[in-house]
Design a protein around this nucleic acid. Structure first.
Length: 411
RNA sequence: GCCAGGGUGGGGUAGUUGGUUAUCCUAGAGGACUGUGGAUCCUCCGACCCGGGUUCGAAUCUCGGCCCUGGCCCCA
């Protein structure tokens, strides 16, 4: 049998319903904050992604040549494409721009719990606003959105300026190494790296910074930071808004283009892949030939949220099955039309079997049966049967409709 | 790329000192019941992940691959 490609998934109707429900909760929060949806191509020039993240990521992407010999890649993330789009299409639009997206991405990685080769991200980007309150809005929106899904998570907020201030005198490659150590909480590796250049004092400061959960303390450790006032404003706004988070100045988020505030969210009941959200303030537009617009945004790992939520009990539609004889079929189609126009879910029996067999099937899949044969056709009525209670009666189609409509949704 | 454990009808399973037509449950189709379902009974449909090797004979032993689950690495 032909199998689906590794790391991809099929979604049956029950699961799709759950996914759409959660998706729409996120969409609704984005809408309330003024973020409007954008859409970019599923594939882009490979260069778009290597410019943002370096040549190393080619190994982790689906890369291919098209028939014109162009080097393309399935998008491994959306932020770069959104900023490219901003530079191409919207440079002169009034700032700030509030955009969001919900789309699938592709990464060629080894699948494991919460990690797939095709996966969906819900993200937002706030472009052209470089203030404490822009940073705060993005974090508040992230929290609002995760809360709306019902997922249980920890939110960690940090700022790169603390770490950067402490290591600003190191050579650039060394800075990168130190940041990588800190991001992974690899204190042994950090000590070894700094020992080799005789800067153990710095190591101790960095470690206490990473373990520090208090803003005042962090300022003391890191020394004079130009962004101090802005950071204060952001944090004050978060506290005032009642956002639940913890400070963590060890977040490095790997890449060079993050400029200040950074934050991550972690689900509590996932395995090794428990990060469900990541974001921060960054500058990318200049890479793609635009101005040096400041941006801020985040992406939520939609599939991980779904894994964390587990199986959901969705509200079920009331289902009306039409059970009819050959003599009743044309009348039945008219009745079905009336019910559908009223918004009800109606399923015709399409087989030629007897009423007994049709009803047997209906009892497994529906809440009501409308039995329509010669007698109903001649009188213009329908026989409505409640498949849970077994009660039935003959009445005109509109009375039957009222009866079904008042039944409401099944648990 | 690496490590561990797995893969038997659509779903869930039994079956290893190698040996009849591969077990059972469930789901699906039909019937007993030609205008009334769920119970019961009967019938049918349907599987050993793929390929090589050992053997008279492989679901079972062996090798390789694919895929699944979880972990390492990576994580934009």
């Amino acid at each position: 049998m032909l199998q689906k490609p590794r790391g991809t998934r099929d979604f049956l109707p029950d699961e799709m319903e759950s996914r759409r429900i959660i998706e729409w909760r996120m969409r609704e929060i984005a809408r309330r904050w003024g973020y409007r949806e954008v859409c970019t191509p599923e594939f882009e020039d490979l260069e778009l992604f290597t410019m943002r993240s370096g040549e190393g990521i080619i190994e982790e992407m689906y890369v291919f040549l098209d028939k014109g010999g162009r080097k393309l890649a399935l998008r491994p993330e959306i932020t770069a494409a959104v900023i490219r789009m901003y530079v191409n299409e919207a440079k002169v639009a009034p700032k700030p721009l509030r955009w969001c997206y919900f789309a699938d991405c592709f990464r060629y990685e080894r699948p494991q719990k919460g990690r797939y080769r095709q996966f969906w991200q819900f993200g937002v980007e706030l472009i052209g606003s470089d203030t404490a309150h822009a940073d705060a809005e993005i974090i508040m929106l992230a929290a609002d959105m995760l809360n709306a899904t019902g997922v249980v998570y920890d939110l960690k907020v940090g700022h790169l300026s603390f770490m950067k201030n402490l290591i600003k005198d190191l050579e650039l490659p060394l800075q990168r190494r130190v940041m990588a150590h800190l991001d992974k909480k690899d204190f042994e590796g950090l000590k070894n790296t700094l020992e080799s250049i005789n800067m153990m004092d710095l190591g101790n400061s960095l470690i206490s910074l990473v373990e520090c959960r208090d803003l005042g303390e962090a300022f003391e450790i890191a020394g004079a930071i130009p962004e101090k006032e802005r950071i204060h404003q952001t944090i004050t706004a978060l506290d005032s808004a009642g956002v639940s988070y913890s400070l963590n100045f060890g977040i490095a988020r790997g890449l060079d283009y993050y400029t200040g505030m950074v934050f991550e969210g972690f689900a509590q009941n996932l395995g090794a892949e428990n990060q469900i959200l990541g974001g921060g303030a960054y500058r990318l537009a200049h890479l793609f030939g635009g101005d040096d617009a400041a941006s801020c945004g985040f992406a939520i790992g939609f599939d991980r949220v779904m894994v964390s939520l587990g199986e959901l009990q969705n509200k079920k539609d009331t289902i009306v099955a039409i059970v009819c004889t050959n003599e009743g079929r044309l009348h039945a189609l008219n009745v079905a039309k009336i019910f559908r126009k009223a918004g009800l879910r109606v399923e015709m029996d399409l087989t030629d079997r007897g009423l007994g067999a049709q009803l047997s099937h209906a009892s497994k899949t529906a809440d009501f049966a409308l039995v329509i044969g010669q007698r109903e056709t001649e009188s213009g009525n329908v026989t409505l049967k409640n498949l849970n209670s077994g009660e039935q009666g003959t009445l005109d189609p509109h009375s039957a409709l009222r009866e079904v409509a008042s039944y409401g949704a099944r648990g």
